[in-house]
Design a protein around this nucleic acid. Structure first.
Ligand SMILES: [Zn+2]
Ligand SMILES: [Zn+2]
Ligand SMILES: [Zn+2]
Ligand SMILES: [Zn+2]
Lengths: 176, 176
DNA sequence: GTCTCGCTGTTATTGTATAACATCACTTTG
DNA sequence: CAAAGTGATGTTATACAATAACAGCGAGAC
């Protein structure tokens, strides 16, 4: 690996997911947040919903609904597409997962609970997806849109390329 | 290029498509540019390819591949999905159309020929799509990505909301 | 108890996209 | 001209993504 771990924890937040981190926390913290949220909001955290959250949290990459469904099926939690889509809809609606339009796939949210406008950095080599925060109304584009009278309601910002690790590995090699 | 806006007061070129304009030019200029480009690049501008370009240019909205295919079928230009997808791939690859990931649909490019990084403003009410230009490497997000060592290769920026016309029409009414 | 509401299970269908292969047309070259 | 090569086309079939529709079950309300 020898990832140089530049800026240890310093400026992080914008590219969390590409950096080395204690990944066990990603899952446990995420699930804990989901449990708390559902308790507070009187929402039913069913086995399927929790399991899908765990599945997504376990990987910093976007997973297709059918890929998730395959896992659910193996575990006897469901076998038909609506099972997966309903759980994903629940998670997305409540801010614990996002859909990556570019990939027609879903990824766990990095800052669960709070409503926000995510942006994604997608590595085409190792398929990891990092979530960053955007301020769509700021920036040239947001200003131009506002000036033109366009009223932004939702944004899709997805950047595809090579993550630091895959860049270091060299353009030709890539990594699985 | 530098198409005269028949409507004054909008100095923005970033939201072209929402503004009033001589729409006949959108089609004729676009096709002309495509003809020139293909001649210069020694590419075959086949009937299907040109017709698909015309279809897209005729509307400032994203069209699904199967919607385009329906038109081609009526005109005897093709009846199977690959016909439409191949033409669309050709146009996208050469910069005369873009895919709007959010809609799984395609839209004609506003500045054909030149390689650029488009952003889209999508009106959820009237379904018009305007193309704006972005500088992904600038802005907070681009800077954050660069700082994190992420190498951007392609960007998807799609803003959904209400266009000026539909905002003026009032939130409740909308317009077809 | 029983009523209600939301989650589940399932069937079926629609929509989006591509693989694979044979054929055809044009162009290059001998 | 003929042969070979290249790339577009036509077609079949299939994979992948998403939703509609409806029956049944279960926990909480009253
Ligand atoms: Zn992690
Ligand atoms: Zn990578
Ligand atoms: Zn126009
Ligand atoms: Zn509109």
């Amino acid at each position: 690996m020898s990832t140089d771990m530049s800026q240890p924890g310093s400026d992080q937040g914008s590219s969390k997911g590409f950096e080395q981190h204690d990944h066990a926390h990603c899952v446990s913290d995420g699930v804990a947040a989901l449990v708390d949220y559902c308790a507070a909001e009187r929402l039913k955290l069913t086995p399927v919903r929790q399991r899908v959250a765990e599945i997504l949290l376990a990987e910093h990459r976007a997973m297709g609904a059918y890929e998730i469904l395959d896992i659910l099926r193996e575990e006897g939690l469901g076998s038909q597409p609506p099972v997966a889509y309903r759980a994903l809809d629940f998670l997305v609606k409540n801010g614990f997962a996002h859909k990556v339009e570019r990939l027609n796939a879903f990824v766990a949210c990095s800052h669960p609970g709070a409503t926000h406008t995510p942006a994604f950095l997608i590595c085409r080599s190792c398929n990891k997806v990092a979530e960053a925060d955007t301020s769509p109304t700021k920036g040239d584009l947001g200003r131009a849109a506002a000036a033109a009278g366009f009223q932004i309601e939702q944004t899709v910002v997805e950047l595809e390329g090579l993550c630091p690790t895959c860049v270091d590995a060299g353009p030709a090699s890539g990594q699985a």
